[in-house]
């Protein structure tokens, strides 16, 4: 199944290289969700994540002429996405996003309080819990964060993450273990809270 997907995506990309716009639309429809969600969790701002995702797919389109299926398409795609996200963070645009995250969280809580029904407390607790998870993830160094997100949500293996982050497999293992160690320490109090 994985091999079939690998071949299918690479085949579509080779068709894009030949000028088939329909194949590009198919690849976009299939991968836009995972890419946007990865960028959203990296940057924690939906509008910025979508803007960066456009940049990612634009780079895919621009690179069509030189595309060679040497690696799995998703690995290549997430290599571009990681690069775009890490550049964005490196350029110091993260603080502004954090402000909007705080604002969004506050607004979210405000809405919960204003709404009626007996689930208000549960919703508030859930919002607070999610805000804490997001903040904990955001406090991880950018490369650790990217490694965790690709490992957890994209179910990528060490070798794939290594290609995406342009480092060795042992470096990826080190990134993941340090990241999960931090997360285990900071989120331990959530044990048994469903």
């Amino acid at each position: 199944m994985a091999v079939a997907t690998f071949e299918h995506d690479a085949e579509l990309m080779l068709r894009v290289r030949e000028g088939d716009a329909q194949s590009f639309a198919l690849l976009l429809a299939k991968h836009r969700g995972p890419v946007i969600h990865f960028l959203y969790r990296m940057i924690q701002n939906q509008a910025v994540a979508e803007e960066l995702a456009q940049e990612v797919f634009l780079r895919v389109y621009r690179s069509r002429a030189s595309y060679e299926p040497t690696a799995k398409f998703t690995t290549w795609l997430f290599r571009i996405a990681s690069h775009v996200a890490l550049n964005h963070i490196r350029d110091g645009k993260q603080e502004r996003n954090q402000e909007s995250l705080d604002q969004a969280t506050d607004e979210g809580l405000g809405r919960q309080v204003a709404s009626s029904a007996p689930t208000v407390e549960q919703r508030m607790l859930r919002e607070v819990r999610l805000a804490e998870i997001r903040r904990t993830i955001e406090l991880l160094p950018a490369k650790q964060r990217a490694a965790v997100l690709m490992h957890k949500y994209q179910e990528m293996g060490y070798a794939q993450i290594a290609v995406a982050l342009e480092c060795s497999e042992s470096a990826v293992k080190s990134l993941l273990f340090r990241a999960y160690e931090t997360l285990r320490a900071k989120l331990a109090h959530m044990a048994g809270r469903g």
Binding site: H37, Y40, R126, R129, I133, Y153, L183, L187, M190
Partner: peptide, 16 residues
């Protein structure tokens, strides 16, 4: 147990 807690917490993080 610690890792499973992290895993569950991350699973609760929905996207827009």
């Amino acid at each position: 147990e610690g890792q499973q807690t992290v895993w569950q917490a991350l699973e609760a993080w929905e996207v827009e």
